[in-house]
Design a protein around this nucleic acid. Structure first.
Lengths: 334, 334
DNA sequence: TTTACTGGCGCAAACGTTTGTTCTCTTCTA
DNA sequence: TAGAAGAGAACAAACGTTTGCGCCAGTAAA
């Protein structure tokens, strides 16, 4: 039953029912008695205004879009949950899309989302910037905020950590522990975040008087197979880097697998730091030292920037703080 | 620009543009020339029929709902991705909701989803059945399929593993390895799946001549803290169970943490099997033996049952096969 | 008793499609 | 040459809301 049928049943106008059910009763001076009558009936027959009709009329659907590169990655699933939670009370639904770390899929999904009548869009890009992506993002007809892996050269509200700083944080921890020969396992080398983390590592080395040219770098791609391959590459180098940084959250799994396959032991044979805290980080043998991103606060800021109340748009990138979580996967060397 | 503006711009009727853009050109005998002209212009001005208007008219929105208990759980995030992927080509979007393992939230979200004009709904329930949940599910105005944790007594298409059989599978592996004193860490003890897995374990014990009364059981709830607590409880029993089964995917993390805290070593001090394969299962020290659910095939069957083409509804529960993945967390005892 | 005001509610347009029906041309046949 | 047939496209109703405006009755002020 829809509200016009309900109105007919009650012998009142559709508009009256609409006003009552959307909470605008007093704004339009509907008598308390009528309000009660309508509410009772609406409850009884379980009638709720159809979001489609309302959406069409209001030009909004009460729904935002969330595009992530990989919902399977704990970082993004935690983020997704945090974001959805924040919208729950406001009655706004979240439509999730997963671009599977593929730029082409990303563009296609983004365009589809942009053509839907959403209230806003939160995009965590794959990280590879194309002109098409840039123009799609910057010409968005709806509020849009970019999360995590930023799009350089696009003026749009965003929130992420300072990846250079985070890279330095990781490198410095290794350097302070006495490591001189560092290695990096990259995730997606076309992503700015990855590049910046790497840059941070190199800067830290320079500042510590180490030659960035001695940094061993491997890896491209997030799949299990690729990271295993690249990690093996890194571990079979001679001399083997004594301190390794996984620039992505999944990379560490490849490193662990490769380490095991090579019969190496952490942190005896090498130390390791991984980006992104995972549920199992502390439970590995040894517990893994991580660079932790403040997911809750990222979600909060993203939602704030999305700015559904219509306040002025912030285009200053919002930066949140990454922290080092020290565990036993990093050992001091002489 | 919407299609009526485009129509005006081209000097044709809206209906003509609509028919061209929705691929019904020949069905309504639109001349090839007009088709070309409309398509060209639509492409040029990037005009796509508004899903809201279309949805309102057609009574469908081209979107299904997916309700999961915890998107942070790898099992569900993998499932979500698999499902979304299968709908991608058909142009159907997936709206994700996370009930956070909370029955009340689940009801609220379910009702909200049911009142939206969706093409279908896939529900992976928290597992606690209430009359309200039952009636909401069975009175669904749209195609609906239940996934994973079933709702007994509700006649609705469903897909899951045979949890009793899976429980037996786990228990038998331990029993065959010589374990006589078993323990179970439950997830949500009100969920049928949990109860059935437990029943399977007990049956296996009985069949092997073991007294089910000797089975040690602990645990309720999926949070980190709760599973740590319950796992500790299990491990400090005396005598300590020599073979432990985590009935839920997250439980194993609690067991590992408790084991570490108690200075115990797996599988020297006790053996362990966990439900649900996780990305890190094979990378733990020792690699964890798991009961693996065929996620891809569950997604496939769920989508098939959702049956958007309007074929007859299957109400026979679809059962898929769980498998044992043997690793080193189970050792043979004398 | 008239005028002015206001509380309470209904009317109808608009949002952007889709689709059954109707209208207008051509062109072909008798 | 008249009529029919059919191709091509326009018309208009419907989908279910929201919302500006206007109507009516009752009350208070003059």
């Amino acid at each position: 039953m829809n509200i016009s049928e309900l109105a007919q049943h009650l012998g009142v106008a559709v508009s009256t029912v609409s006003r009552v059910l959307s909470g605008n009763a007093d704004k339009y001076r509907i008598s308390e008695k009528t309000v009660q009558r309508v509410q009772k009936a609406a409850e009884k027959y379980r009638v709720v205004p159809d979001p489609l009709g309302a959406g069409l009329r209001k030009g909004k659907l009460g729904m935002i879009g969330l595009l992530v590169p990989d919902i399977t990655n704990p970082f993004f699933s935690t983020l997704a949950r945090a974001i959805e939670l924040r919208f729950r009370d406001t009655g706004i639904a979240v439509q999730l899309c997963d671009s599977a770390e593929d730029p082409a899929t990303e563009i296609a999904l983004l365009n589809k989302l942009l053509s839907r009548r959403l209230d806003g869009l939160i995009v965590a890009p794959v990280g590879e910037v194309s002109d098409e992506l840039k123009s799609a993002v910057s010409n968005s007809p709806m509020p849009l905020v970019v999360l995590d892996r930023l799009l350089p050269g696009v003026s749009v509200p965003s929130v992420s950590i300072d990846n250079i700083k985070a890279g330095k944080l990781a490198a410095n921890h290794l350097i302070e522990s006495g490591h001189k020969h560092l290695g990096c396992l990259r995730g997606n080398c076309r992503a700015i975040s990855d590049q910046e983390r790497l840059k941070g590592v190199e800067e830290a080395m320079r500042e510590a008087g180490l030659d960035p040219a001695t940094l061993s770098i491997a890896g491209t791609g997030y799949t299990r197979e690729l990271s295993l391959l690249s990690a093996t590459e890194l571990l079979t180098l001679s001399p083997r880097p004594s301190g390794i940084i996984s620039l992505s959250g999944q990379g560490i799994l490849g490193i662990l697998e490769a380490s095991r396959a090579s019969g190496l032991s952490i942190p005896r044979d090498f130390s390791v730091i991984a980006f992104d805290e995972q549920p199992w980080s502390a439970l590995m043998q040894p517990p893994i030292t991580t660079i932790t991103q403040p997911i809750e606060s990222m979600a909060e800021k993203a939602v704030f920037l999305l700015n559904l109340e219509g306040r002025a748009k912030e285009v200053t990138p919002e930066v949140v703080e990454a922290t080092l979580c020290r565990r036993e996967s990093v050992a001091a060397v002489n």
